[in-house]
Amino acid sequence: MKLKICGMKYPDNILEVGSLLPDYMGFIFWEKSARYFDGAMPNLPQSIKKTGVFVNASQGEIATKVAQYDLQAVQLHGHESVVFCQELRSKLAKNIEIIKVFSVNADFDFDQLHPFETVCDYFLFDTKGKLPGGNGTTFDWKVLAKYPSQKPFFLSGGIGLDEIDLVNEILKTDLPIYAIDVNSKFEIEAGLKNINLLREIHPKISTDNSRIVRTNIK
């Protein structure tokens, strides 16, 4: 199970969190966000995939940020179309991962995912709210029982230590969960992560799926 820590902002804190070796670290390039990143990128271990988070940005802006910050992944958190994703894929190096975000509620239509399967590497499911992301609440994960695909996805939206038992339960299902994405519930303030809380999360997440008896979500 991969771990993505999103909403990084402050260089010293970025280095501190980087010492924990999360698989992904997210940097938000949406100016309206309290976690907007526009500073200098410190040197991080090569195993960490630096991920740029964009909301309805142009392909040119995304490509510029990828080059400027040596990003290994881009997360599209707006209303980007299939064609947009396809064109962006052709502009970026083949090793740059594309993560397409969908905001989920009880009425979410999973049929809309199908056209995106060939133009992105992963989906990310977040809670539908007033903001494109970072609303700090979980959606009802039972809705994922309707997931019709084998495309791996990130699970996001208000995940904190109190939700880890639920995370481990959903990992027992057949769902192709690739990673969990944490943010606001591990913060001292917007963009400043609590290193002590983050140290607790890895040991609490089930990683040996071979020992898990898989069941269906009910």
Rank of each mutant, 00 (worst) to 15 (best):
A67C: 08
A67N: 13
Q68L: 15
Y69G: 10
Y69M: 04
Y69W: 10
Y69P: 11
L71T: 05
Q72Y: 00
Q72C: 00
V74H: 10
V74C: 11
L76Y: 05
G78W: 02
S81G: 10
S81H: 08
V83N: 08
F84D: 04
F84C: 04
F84Y: 15
F84R: 01
C85F: 05
Q86I: 02
Q86E: 15
Q86H: 13
E87A: 12
R89S: 14
S90Y: 07
S90R: 14
N95T: 08
N95Q: 13
N95F: 04
I96D: 07
I96L: 04
I96R: 08
E97D: 10
E97P: 00
I98P: 05
K100R: 15
F102Y: 09
F102S: 11
S103I: 00
V104S: 09
N105M: 02
A106I: 09
D107I: 03
F108P: 01
F108I: 04
D111N: 14
Q112R: 11
T118I: 05
V119R: 11
C120T: 13
Y122N: 07
F123T: 07
L124H: 01
F125Q: 03
F125H: 02
F125D: 05
F125Y: 03
F125N: 05
D126Q: 06
D126V: 00
K128M: 03
G129Q: 03
K130Q: 15
K130Y: 02
L131W: 11
G133F: 15
G134K: 12
G134R: 13
N135Y: 07
N135K: 03
T138F: 00
T138Y: 01
D140R: 01
K142H: 08
K142W: 00
V143R: 01
L144C: 06
L144Q: 04
A145C: 03
P148G: 11
P148L: 11
P148K: 08
S149R: 08
Q150L: 01
Q150S: 11
K151V: 11
K151P: 00
F154D: 01
L155V: 01
L155F: 01
S156L: 02
S156C: 12
G157L: 02
I159E: 00
G160V: 06
L161W: 09
E163I: 04
E163G: 06
I164W: 00
D165F: 00
L166I: 11
N168S: 06
N168I: 12
E169Q: 14
E169S: 06
E169T: 12
I170P: 05
L171K: 02
T173D: 03
L175T: 13
P176C: 06
I177N: 08
I177R: 09
I177H: 10
Y178F: 15
A179V: 08
I180T: 04
I180C: 05
I180W: 04
S184C: 14
S184Y: 09
K185Q: 13
I188C: 12
E189D: 15
E189C: 14
A190D: 15
A190C: 08
A190F: 10
G191T: 12
G191K: 09
G191V: 14
L192F: 15
K193P: 14
N196I: 00
